[in-house]
Design a protein around this nucleic acid. Structure first.
Lengths: 344, 344
DNA sequence: ATGTGGTGCCCAATCGTTTTGGCAAGTGAG
DNA sequence: CTCACTTGCCAAAACGATTGGGCACCACAT
């Protein structure tokens, strides 16, 4: 078919120069254009179905209106999609598009693919992890504005957007306290990541606020799987003074807790309240009863990261000094797994 | 910092013309270059850290080495990520990058965003649905090579890549038959989508192969949720001659079945075998016992779609006539929810 | 001396925009 | 009629690459 029509075609059709067309379409200030001419040009552009060539534009402007989204694992984490969605929708507001890249954690592959990104002259890069952790930012990204997403770097000059794990943990525990629980177990996971420490800290803070003493016997660490949680829950629930509520590091651990509870003849939430973390809807809604949990603000994180990136590219100065480290709150999502403790 | 260095810089540093540098870097045929010069240029390019400007290159070549990935919902479906991953990794093999776009099903938003894509001069577009269905391809995409992903169009001239629902359904049922089951229930869903009809067809085919008569009372349609499946399973399992195995349209329906079985005192897989569909690992692994299921070949679909797109852009002819409609098989993923039927 | 054929390189046009610095025509004052 | 100013438009130079068509040089045969 005929090639896409360009500014030149519009100029010819409207009987003016390319310059004038460009001025009109871009609404350049300080350039005086006759109102009638403007109308005519706009009209012909519309009729011809003109659309600017982004490559040419980018070349001239030294700006591609495209940002790179680099992540280790798009695939494994569900809800990862919400991060992408948040980023993309925020980007769309500024006519930006996302160039996606998954590295699978392979450092060499990462290098090669980021190279491709940079060749495309992206205006900035979102370097995302699929779970909150500390990452090492690739050297190549020094040359381009970068924001970390669901990740922090040792280097504090790189801005980042992460969930507030402490607040999230506290939110979960406060919900249990609010219902009158005092003996609250915590099934933590065993990895050395911010979530592990942060949620534990939140657990302790919430207990302290409520004047409940911290009892280390109520905290047990296990692999963040249903099977692991099942074992841990069995132990915890068969102890002398069993907890009346369990806070699970992850929703999938709650699946194990439900199983353990069923086996011990404890019904949820009458005999035992359970609260999870992550709000994996497929799981939470499928469980009986529906699992109350704390959600990670994935969508917002994506959106805020783009906003930060734009702020960064806005200020030419590449302002030195520590950059913004934004923490987003994790909201409670109530379903049906929390009730008042049984009268023992 | 100093701007990125270009071909011009390399030329100057090596003491040759830009033309020569370009010839050397692109290994242009029919152009004779002195071996020594070639070495010198390559060396300086390496030292200077030269990388071509993709925008300029794309402008000249009328090819951006970028393909658009348009989907309705990145977010809601887990495993959607595997489609993206498959597409991206296949694309990377050809030095292509993916420009992602999520429309949320909003037709007007979709139009605007695809417009952005086309402005970026993408070489082709993957139009993906997050579950297998029939879609209407946007008018704008006529002008650019397009492949449908997990979707079909009424227009058979658009190539597509979809899972083989019939084979998938049959695979599930054959696994049950193989273990000796003869009364096999099917919890279908109620939507009018290819999966609903295809898997039912597969169910019937597998039964027919095994010489088992089709009994309509064993098929019940419900919303594809745990709650819906729970109700349906209760009915089915309390019938006079209850089925010894249940094939569920979706893994999350199997969650409801597990619950119903537990309530009726049936243990899985001893008293009742269950098989799901989708292989949502978080669910399948979290259930007790682990859920045997049929996987959708998401990764392969993404990869094949890119391959098709490349084939399409390769043949200039835009060959008329019906295009390739590729169906990919759905493999069985065995866990622990299927066993031989109880001796009644 | 002239022609013939290779070799090794470069000039300049091109892709589709944006933008700087004009220039010509019109207007009103002197 | 001339000057100064405004208005409305345009020519041409970028941006960074690719590529068709040379050109200059050398060797060798005539």
């Amino acid at each position: 078919m005929g090639r896409r029509i360009g500014i030149k075609d519009v100029a010819a059709a409207a009987g003016v120069s390319v310059t004038t067309v460009s001025h009109i379409l871009n609404e350049v200030e300080g350039k005086r254009i006759n109102t009638e001419t403007r109308q005519r040009v706009l009209e012909t552009a519309r009729q011809l179905g003109y659309a600017p060539n982004g490559l040419a534009r980018g070349l001239r402007l030294k700006r591609s209106s495209t940002i790179g989204f680099v992540s280790d694992q798009i695939a494994t984490t569900p809800h990862a999609g919400r991060i992408i969605l948040g980023a993309q929708e925020e980007a769309a507001k500024h006519d930006l598009l996302l160039l996606m890249l998954n590295t699978g954690g392979d450092r060499e592959l990462e290098r090669r693919e980021i190279e491709l990104l940079l060749q495309r002259q992206v205006d900035g890069v979102l370097y995302a992890s699929m779970y909150h952790r500390v990452v090492e930012v690739p050297e190549q990204l020094r040359s381009v504005p970068t924001v970390l997403l669901d990740a922090r770097a040792d280097d504090p000059s790189v801005p980042s957007v992460v969930p507030d794990e402490v607040q999230g943990g506290a939110t979960a525990v406060r919900e249990l306290l609010r219902h009158g629980h005092r003996r609250i177990g915590f099934l933590n996971n065993v990895d050395d990541i911010p979530a592990t420490h942060g949620r534990l800290e939140g657990y302790r803070q919430a207990l302290a606020e409520a004047g409940v003493a911290f009892d280390p016997r109520l905290v047990v660490a296990e692999t963040a799987s249903a099977a692991g949680a099942y074992r841990a829950a069995l132990t915890l629930l068969q102890a002398a003074e069993r907890p009346t509520a369990l806070f699970c590091f992850a929703d999938r651990m709650a699946m194990g807790v439900y199983h353990a509870a069923a086996e011990l003849g404890l019904s949820i939430p009458t005999d035992l309240s359970v609260i999870g973390f992550d709000n994996q809807e497929l799981i939470c809604d499928g469980m009986f009863p529906g699992l109350t949990t704390v959600a990670l603000p994935h969508y917002e994180m994506g959106a805020r990261a783009v906003a930060q990136l734009l702020a960064l590219t806005g200020t030419k100065g590449q302002g030195t000094g520590p950059a913004a480290q934004e923490m987003l709150p994790c909201p409670l999502v109530a379903r049906a797994s929390v009730a008042s403790p049984p009268r023992l």
